[in-house]
Amino acid sequence: MAPLTASSCAAPEQTVELPEGTNTTDQAVVQGRVLADAAPVGGAFVRLLDATGEFTAEVVSSPEGVFRFYTAPGTWTVRALSRAGSGQADLAVTTGVFEVDVPVAR
């Protein structure tokens, strides 16, 4: 077995395009950008919370402010925390791809 490295334990790279072969027929993909005054915010901590407000997952936004989560259908909150401020967006998803931008402010 190969030793674990920081790169092997890291979250997948956050890009605008879905990875080839992503199945959206039985899962939801929640993706978008973190924005401050319409400018992308890279390095934001983006958290996915379930319908009860329970923490589910976290990723760091790309330099372009992009984030992505793979989820089950349901009601979710996407919360972003950054040096530019914080913000959140609530959404209900079924299967497929759902785009949501999260504006942040102080």
Results as ranks from 00 to 15, higher is better:
Leu81Cys: 00
Ser8Ile: 06
Phe55Ser: 01
Ala84Lys: 02
Gly96Thr: 07
Val104Ser: 04
Thr15Ser: 15
Glu58Tyr: 01
Pro73Met: 07
Gln14Trp: 10
Val60Met: 13
Ala39Gly: 01
Val100Arg: 15
Leu35Cys: 06
Ala92Arg: 08
Leu48Ser: 09
Glu64Cys: 07
Thr25Tyr: 08
Thr75Glu: 12
Pro63Asp: 12
Val59Trp: 01
Ala80Gly: 04
Ser7His: 12
Ala89Gln: 11
Thr15Cys: 14
Leu91Thr: 01
Thr22His: 06
Asp101Thr: 13
Gly96Ala: 07
Val29Ile: 15
Arg68Asn: 07
Val93Trp: 06
Arg33Phe: 07
Val60Pro: 06
Gly85Phe: 00
Pro103Arg: 14
Leu81Trp: 02
Asp26Arg: 03
Ala92Asp: 06
Thr25Leu: 15
Pro19Met: 13
Arg83Cys: 02
Glu99Lys: 07
Arg79Gly: 02
Val16Thr: 09
Ala72Glu: 15
Ala51Asp: 14
Ala39Tyr: 05
Val102Met: 07
Ala92Trp: 02
Ala44Pro: 02
Phe55Gly: 00
Glu58Asp: 04
Phe98Trp: 09
Ser86Thr: 05
Ala36Leu: 14
Cys9Ser: 08
Asn23Ala: 14
Ala51Ser: 13
Ala11Glu: 01
Ala44Trp: 03
Phe69Pro: 05
Val29Gln: 06
Ala28Glu: 09
Leu91Val: 02
Thr77Glu: 06
Ala39Cys: 03
Val93Gly: 04
Ser61Leu: 11
Val16Trp: 08
Phe98Cys: 02
Gln27Tyr: 14
Ser8Gln: 03
Ala2Thr: 10
Thr56Arg: 13
Leu91Phe: 01
Glu54Gly: 02
Phe45Asn: 10
Val30Leu: 15
Pro63Lys: 02
Thr24Leu: 15
Ala84Gln: 04
Pro73Ser: 13
Asp101His: 14
Ser8Glu: 03
Val104Leu: 07
Asp37Ala: 13
Val34Leu: 11
Ala6Phe: 11
Gly53Glu: 05
Ala84Val: 01
Tyr70Arg: 15
Gly87Phe: 00
Thr77Asp: 02
Gly21Asn: 08
Pro103Val: 12
Ala80Phe: 05
Gly85Arg: 00
Leu81Asp: 05
Ser86Gly: 03
Ser86Lys: 03
Thr52His: 06
Ser7Asn: 10
Glu64Val: 08
Ala51Trp: 09
Val41Leu: 09
Thr56Ala: 12
Asp101Arg: 13
Asp37Lys: 11
Asp101Ile: 10
Ala39Met: 14
Phe55Asp: 03
Ala39Thr: 11
Val102Lys: 05
Glu58Ala: 10
Thr71Phe: 05
Ala6Cys: 04
Ser8Met: 03
Ala6Thr: 08
Tyr70Phe: 15
Ala105Met: 12
Thr5Pro: 01
Leu48His: 08
Glu99Ser: 13
Ser61Gln: 07
Arg47Met: 13
Met1Gln: 08
Thr71Pro: 03
Arg106Trp: 04
Ala36Lys: 15
Gln27Pro: 12
Arg68Glu: 07
Ser61Phe: 07
Leu48Gln: 08
Val60Glu: 15
Val30Pro: 03
Ser82Tyr: 01
Thr56Asn: 05
Pro12Asp: 10
